[in-house]
Structure formats: structure tokens, C-alpha cells
Design a protein around this nucleic acid. Structure first.
Length: 598
RNA sequence: GGUCCUGUAGAUCAGUCUGGAGUGAUCGCCACCCUGUCAAGGUGGAGGCCGCGGGUUCAAAUCCCGUCAGGACCGCCA
């Protein structure tokens, strides 16, 4: 039907007779003798010179045949990629009329998202969405290529599976043939991919759809896609290598260049320096340990198990008092008792040191003033300035409390004060290693697994888990590291994985520690444990969230922008009106009865 | 389950704090004019349950209560 795409034509094509198809982007009518029609397809826009008498309106679908020529002297449009050329002597075939679109398709207007989703078929025509969908396809293409090249086999796992009580809520599907029984939709192919390892697939991957019935967010949808990977006879660093290769290729495919960094950090380091297990390392402002400085302090606010601080460069001038009050309130909402702040200034010998704002001074010639400065001794002030490497005009923020809380609050404050916009162009990939095996204790004093119960403990910590002499205390258990790891990009968790347990004694010990009895373990994970009895290779794996990866690569702060037909925050689809009731006969067939709303 | 923000013309928004006639703006739409525009230009026109329901008031887009929808976040997401 067509000979060329609009956006691909240029001065090399001058003189050719071409046919282009697409939507009328804009029409500039000068009289019945002359009109300009910008024709749009997914590749771009081409100006066509047509007879002004033709009734061509926005979003009409047409095929235009004409001769490509250079635009007359002085009429080229440098803002348009095809701005040097235009189509003349046009023969226009009208393929479809169109009502005026429900919202403007230009890139300047930020249209209400519900309206966009209700008419997604129109919204997808916009260059932004065309770019995003094509970038997503590029990510998938590069990943398949990279995994294939590394000897991985793409295996499809079932969508209708047995419900296994895992972390997230399952979506369930009623069984027609067995009324009262239900399938679950997979939260991930976790168990099946481990079964492929027992099955000798050796290296498995899949671009898998996963479903979790948990509340939606900017970076979470009910349905999402992940690169799911598992390999046998490998160790942790092999897996990191496989995934790094795939993600680097995807990055290069979308952005045109390889990512610069794939740094590594331990979980403990990440928590201590950034207050988060998914640090955004595009900027500094690291958390600095100040606990020893206040070991014997007389200042009651700093008499706490842990004191940490961050320094905002230039903050003394840039933060008005109202903003500081706002920050203090934020920290309190996040759980801190308060937020200590002080300005860094030059010691002025002429100033009256009996001033009530009395500055605590240090040998550096710098002092801390305002806020809680008057409670600090000059030695403490000097040590704080030195530890934070603070300069004149900086603002320092300190939080004193339990260690976990200090990290959490200062980590969030750091993001609030310094985080660059999502599309600043840098891609700081970061492997976070050595997650703790357990993230805490529940009310019964039993440990809560950080990952899933098949995660292999760190080799060095195995003796701690399985001591020959008696049981461990809860606190000791929390010290045990696991061979679980996350991939983080610019502060977003892209994915996680682990080396799996293939040793029966270790697995039994984990269930024991978690308080899962043998019969319960058999009920919940029986088919996996059974499979392991028949020869389980050592194996390890990973999963990368592709919606998040794509969003970051194209600079979107919301994964809905890289999903063709996403749901709203309440889980509805404004286009199809899902979820919706089903017919009574359908319910009967499934043996279901719907209760009236409470 | 919770906190916060938003809802006014087809679209994007003023107006709401401090109540006084749907007072509007820009874009789009419709008609006409216009032979080099490109966010074309000109003249004229149509278009409104101010999300919905209730309350206060002489009077409500505006204040109060409820509710629905959307968004950000907390909980949750092994």
C-alpha cells in the first residue's frame, strides 16, 4: 500500500514518486488552492502540499502519493527531521474519516491519565508512546539475544498453577471441572524454573508475565514482565555475569551506549552509607557515622544507640526556615523523634560568644550555629564538621535513635534533599550483595526470611546456622548472611535473586528455624522437595523487572508509560471497564455465588 | 486499611483561602476568508449538572459533611 515511511524520507529521495500512509497530524489551509498536510506515521511526520479544497481533518487516515522535492528556498523547517523536503502533486486517498480526538495529540499538553487510558488507542499514536513501546521491544530483543548467546534456553511455564502461600496475594481462577477448586496465576515462575534445573535444562530463561494482587504504585502493576533466569552448576558471580550482560545489552540497545558502572556493594554497606537497600548512587550526601563522637555527650538529644548525619552543600543559604520545619515534620512522620539541624559558618572572633544562638566552634575555624548547636561542646562540633567534611554555608542534619530507624529516616531525607530527576541521563547499576538471611523476628520470635525459604546461606555463615552445640538465639540468626542479591538502578530495585539450597540438611534446618514443620513444608512446597530427592544440581537464579528497566531507560517515572494497556491505581482498566461482573449462568457453571457487599 | 493532593467548556487551566449572576483564558471544534505555512493567520459562532449527594446561608464552583473517580506515598509487595 505504501512505498515509504514518512519520517525516513530525506533529500536523498528527491525526485522519487512515493506513497505514504498515516494520520493527518495537522492541516494548514491557505485557500482552496493550497493547503499543507502534515502526515504522521510511527516514524515521523512529512509535509504534503495538497489542494486546499480537500476536506482533510485531524486524524483522518489517508494514503498520499506524490513526488518528493526539496522545499522552495527559505521554506525549510529545521525543527522537523524531514523539514528539507515535501511531497508535491499529491493524490490523496481517504481511507478513514475520524472524529476530533478526545484530547490533543501534541507533546505539550499533559492530559488527564484516565482520559488517555480510556482512549489508549489514540494515546498510543503519540511519539512518546511509540518511542516507549519500541524501546520496550528493544529491551526484549536485546535480552533474548544476550541470553541465547550465553546458552540459555527459553522455556514457557504455566499460567494456571496451584496456589502456594508465598509472599504476595494470589490472583485465582475458579475451576469449571472441579467447582470449589481454584488455579492461581503465577507471582513468578520461581518453583517451575527450579524444577527445570532438576530437569536438566541447565540454563533456563523466560520473559515471564507475573501477577500479584497487591496495591498498585508508580512502579507496580498487577501484571508485570520479568526476565527470569536460572542456571545449574554455577555460583553467585556467574549469575551476576549473565544478568549484567543481558541488562547491559538492553541498555545499549535503547540508549546507544554501554552502561558505565555495575558497581557492587554489600547490603550492610548500603544500609550504613545510604540508609537503603536500593541506594541511588547518582549523588553523594552519604550517611556518616557519628556515634563515637557522642559516646559521652551531655547533649540529651544525642544520647542514643546510633547517631548519623548528612551534609547538604550550600544548605545554610538555600533552605528557608519554612522548608526546614517541613523536613523536621517529614522525619517525624517517618518515625524519628526529631531532626537536628545546624548551619556551618566561619568562627568570627569579634562576635559575642555569649549570644544565645551560641555557636559551637572547632579548630578548623568553622563553627556550627542555630538549631541545636548550643547543646554541642566545641569538641563535638569540630568532630562533626570534620566527619561530614562540611564547608562554610553547608547545612548538617543529624538523627539519633535506634540504628535501623536512623538509617531509614536519613536515607529518606537524603533522597528528599538530593535525588536527581529520573531522566538525568545517568545509569548507575549497582549489585547489592550479602542480604541478611532473615529480616527480623515475628511476634513468636521466629525469624522472617528476607527472600524465600530456598535461599542458600552465605558459606562463611553456615556454621552459625548449623552449630553442633544447641539452638541459636534470635539475635544470632539475624547476623546470618545469605547468598541473595539485588540489582539496583538509580534507586529503583530492578530485581533480585539468590543461590538456592540444594542440600537437604540445610533446607531442613531452614524450615526448622522458620518454624515450618515437616508436614507443613511437604504440603506447601512438596513437589519441589520431592523433585530435589531425585538429584538436584546446585543452582542459582535471578529475575529482572522489565517494566521498571524500560521506564528508567526511557526516562519515565511511571511504568504505566511503558505498558500498552495498564491499569489505574485502583486496578481498573478505563478502556475495557475491567474488572466487571459476569453472567449468572457463568457463575453457576463455576459453582460460585457472589455475596452482597457488606 | 491509612495519609496527602486533584476533580470548573472537547482539552489544559484561572477563579475556591476571603460566599454575591457560569466572570472566564488559551487550545480545539463549526462556518466563512486567505497561494508558502509548519503551535499558520483573519472574522464570526457554538459549547458548562463547576464530579455526585446532602447541609449551612437571603445567596454556594467557593464554607461543612458524605460519596465517587484519578494520582503520590505508607502499610502491603517472600
Amino acid at each position: 500500500m505504501r512505498s515509504d515511511l514518512c519520517g525516513h524520507l530525506n533529500s536523498d529521495d528527491v525526485g522519487r514518486c512515493v506513497t505514504v500512509c498515516g494520520w493527518v497530524d495537522r492541516r494548514r489551509e491557505h485557500s482552496e488552492h493550497l493547503a499543507f498536510v502534515d502526515l504522521r506515521d510511527h516514524s515521523g511526520v512529512l509535509q504534503c502540499v495538497v489542494d486546499g479544497a480537500r476536506d482533510l481533518r485531524a486524524e483522518y487516515v489517508v494514503a498520499i502519493t506524490g513526488t518528493l522535492r526539496l522545499r522552495p528556498e527559505g521554506t525549510a523547517n529545521p525543527a522537523l527531521p524531514t523539514g528539507d523536503v515535501e511531497l508535491q502533486d499529491c493524490d490523496v486517498e481517504l481511507l478513514s474519516r475520524a472524529e476530533p480526538p478526545p484530547f490533543p495529540l501534541d507533546e505539550r499538553t499533559e492530559v488527564d491519565e484516565t482520559l488517555r487510558l480510556r482512549h489508549r488507542y489514540v494515546d498510543l499514536r503519540k511519539p512518546r508512546m511509540q518511542r516507549n513501546l519500541r524501546s520496550r521491544a528493544a529491551v526484549n530483543r536485546a535480552i533474548r539475544r544476550a541470553m541465547d548467546a550465553q546458552g540459555f534456553v527459553e522455556v514457557e511455564t504455566p499460567m494456571l498453577i496451584a496456589s502456594t502461600p508465598e509472599g504476595a496475594r494470589d490472583f485465582v481462577v475458579p475451576s469449571r471441572k472441579e467447582p470449589g477448586a481454584f488455579y492461581a496465576l503465577p507471582q513468578s515462575p520461581q518453583i517451575f524454573k527450579q524444577l527445570t534445573m532438576v530437569g536438566g535444562v541447565d540454563r533456563y530463561y523466560q520473559i515471564a508475565r507475573c501477577l500479584r494482587d497487591e496495591d498498585l504504585r508508580a512502579d507496580r502493576q498487577f501484571e508485570f514482565s520479568q526476565l527470569d533466569v536460572e542456571a545449574s552448576f554455577v555460583q553467585r558471580d556467574d549469575v551476576l555475569g549473565f544478568v549484567t550482560t543481558a541488562v547491559a545489552e538492553a541498555t545499549a540497545e535503547v540508549t546507544g551506549h554501554d552502561p558505565e558502572t555495575f558497581d557492587r556493594i554489600t547490603w550492610l554497606d548500603a544500609m550504613e552509607r545510604f540508609g537503603s537497600d536500593k541506594p541511588d548512587t547518582r549523588f553523594g550526601m552519604e550517611l556518616v557515622e557519628l556515634t563515637p563522637i557522642f559516646a559521652d555527650t551531655k547533649a540529651r538529644v544525642f544520647q542514643a544507640p546510633c547517631v548519623k548525619g548528612i551534609c547538604l552543600s550550600g544548605g545554610a543559604e538555600s533552605l528557608p526556615r519554612s522548608r526546614i520545619d517541613e523536613l523536621v515534620a517529614m522525619c517525624q512522620r517517618w518515625g524519628a523523634k526529631g531532626l537536628a539541624w545546624m548551619r556551618v559558618a566561619t568562627a568570627d572572633p569579634a562576635s559575642d560568644s555569649s549570644n544565645e544562638d551560641a555557636a559551637a566552634s572547632g579548630a578548623s575555624g568553622l563553627i556550627l550555629e542555630a538549631g541545636v548547636a548550643k547543646f554541642l561542646s566545641s569538641a563535638e562540633a569540630a568532630a562533626v564538621i570534620s566527619a561530614l567534611d562540611a564547608k562554610v554555608g553547608d547545612m548538617v542534619f543529624l538523627v539519633a535513635d535506634e540504628r535501623r530507624l536512623v538509617r531509614h529516616v536519613l536515607g529518606l531525607l537524603r533522597l528528599e534533599l538530593g535525588r536527581p530527576p529520573v531522566n538525568d541521563g545517568s545509569f548507575n547499576y549497582l549489585w547489592v550483595l550479602d542480604f541478611p538471611l532473615f529480616e527480623g523476628l515475628n511476634a513468636q520470635g521466629e525469624p522472617i526470611p528476607s527472600h524465600h525459604p530456598f535461599t542458600m546461606p552465605h558459606e562463611d555463615d553456615l556454621p552459625m546456622l548449623m552449630p553442633p552445640d544447641g539452638p541459636l538465639s534470635g539475635e544470632d540468626l539475624l547476623q546470618i548472611r545469605s547468598q541473595a542479591y539485588d540489582l539496583v538502578l538509580n534507586g529503583w530495585e530492578l530485581g533480585s535473586g539468590s543461590v538456592r539450597i540444594h542440600r537437604r540438611d540445610v533446607q531442613q534446618r531452614i524450615f526448622e528455624v522458620l518454624g515450618i514443620a515437616a508436614d507443613e513444608a511437604q504440603k506447601r512446597f512438596g513437589f519441589l522437595l520431592d523433585a530435589f530427592r531425585y538429584g538436584a544440581p546446585p543452582h542459582a537464579g535471578f529475575a529482572v523487572g522489565l517494566d521498571r528497566l524500560t521506564a528508567l531507560l526511557v526516562g519515565e517515572e511511571n511504568i504505566r508509560e511503558v505498558i500498552a494497556f495498564p491499569k489505574t491505581q485502583s486496578g481498573a482498566d478505563p478502556l475495557t471497564d475491567a474488572p466487571s461482573p459476569i453472567a449468572e449462568t457463568h457463575l453457576q457453571e463455576l459453582g460460585l455465588r457472589v455475596l452482597p457487599p457488606a
